[in-house]
């Protein structure tokens, strides 16, 4: 990845009068962290990075920004937001456009072909986090760590994030400008996570999810990190009617996770953010991917590929499967 090229492009974009800021990543404050970074002027681009640690999906910030009432006599800020996207992130942008959650003319999309990200927790098993930020880059197919002053090559298979092993679209599907050469898509791995659960018997599956959902502390980081969970009035916050009680127990947690997964059915673009941010380590991605498989295999639909597509749950085909109906 040519960082200079990226910074140059970014500087050009943030210098434009019609751009408010650019959302990218910068080095984290310690260990293997990379932080989302809002660049407001050309000087700020020096801190921009794109490395195998930039796993977070920045498209979430497009809808996280609070819409405040504009004071009387002032004009609303109509400037565009620029966003760095990997392949998976670009699908979130597409899906947001499908749902009219954002407007295309208020966006500048900078596409970054993505060779795959690391799951830092896998790295930390062998190379524990250090106080100083660890530099990581791509080296051929593998990852190159600059760890305590030492250069270490970590084989791709050892550290590649799960979502990247399953990735089908490493190149951005929507962008105004692309930095870097397109990468050759790799054969997506079998989704062993979902298959493992499917192979269990019904009571075993229940036991598995009972253990998982019982751990939930309802911090809602999965909801907030998701680029496609952006309802202004979320049913989880509703008191009247109370769809899901706020009490934290297995029953309510399960209802919450069913609601969350269901609301993403046919919309989830499999960026894996929900699972990554979960402090309790609940494999939320499996729920989403299970539904994504069904949508892909039985309805031949994959969300986020086409900004003009019809939203899956708000459309139908007369020949949709109905073998389950009596």
């Amino acid at each position: 990845m040519d960082l200079n090229k990226l910074r140059e492009t970014a500087a050009g974009i943030v210098s434009r009068d019609d751009v408010k800021y650019l959302i990218g990543w910068r080095r984290g404050t310690f260990g293997y962290r990379a932080a989302p970074y809002f660049v407001e002027d050309a000087a700020g681009v020096e801190e921009l990075i794109f490395s195998p640690l930039c796993i977070s999906n920045l498209a979430a910030y497009l809808t996280l920004v609070e819409k405040l009432p504009v004071p009387r006599g002032q004009e609303p800020d109509q400037r565009k937001v620029a966003l760095l996207v990997k392949g998976c992130d670009s699908r979130a942008v597409n899906q947001l456009l499908v749902e009219k959650g954002i407007k295309r003319d208020q966006l500048v999309v900078v596409g970054l072909p993505c060779p795959g990200m690391v799951d830092w927790k896998l790295l930390a098993e062998k190379y524990p986090e250090t106080e100083a930020p660890v530099e990581i880059s791509w080296k051929g197919d593998d990852f190159l760590l600059l760890y305590n002053g030492q250069e270490i090559v970590v084989p791709r298979a050892e550290a590649l994030a799960e979502k990247c092993r399953l990735c089908r679209h490493p190149n951005p599907l929507i962008s105004d400008v692309t930095v870097g050469e397109p990468v050759q898509p790799w054969a997506p791995a079998e989704d062993s996570g979902v298959a493992e659960v499917e192979a269990k018997s019904t009571p075993e599956r229940w036991a598995y999810w009972e253990e998982q959902f019982s751990k939930c502390i309802r911090c809602y980081s999965c909801r907030n990190a998701c680029p496609l969970c952006y309802c202004e009035d979320c049913i989880l916050d509703r008191l009247d009617p109370t769809w899901v009680n706020r009490a934290v127990n297995f029953s309510e947690n399960t209802a919450f996770h069913l609601a969350r997964a269901f609301h993403l059915a046919g919309r989830c673009i499999e960026c894996g953010e929900c699972e990554r941010v979960c402090p309790a380590g609940i494999p939320l991605g499996k729920l989403n991917r299970k539904l994504a498989h069904t949508v892909r295999e039985e309805y031949g639909f994959e969300p986020g590929l086409d900004p003009e597509a019809e939203p899956f749950q708000a459309s139908y085909k007369p020949e949709d499967p109905e073998e389950f109906i009596l």
């Binding site: 932080a35 809002f38 990190a225 941010v277």
Partner: peptide, 12 residues
């Protein structure tokens, strides 16, 4: 700016 508005920092 980067805050997701989740409850991790406070709950834990």
């Amino acid at each position: 700016a980067a805050c997701l508005g989740c409850g991790i920092c406070t709950y834990l």
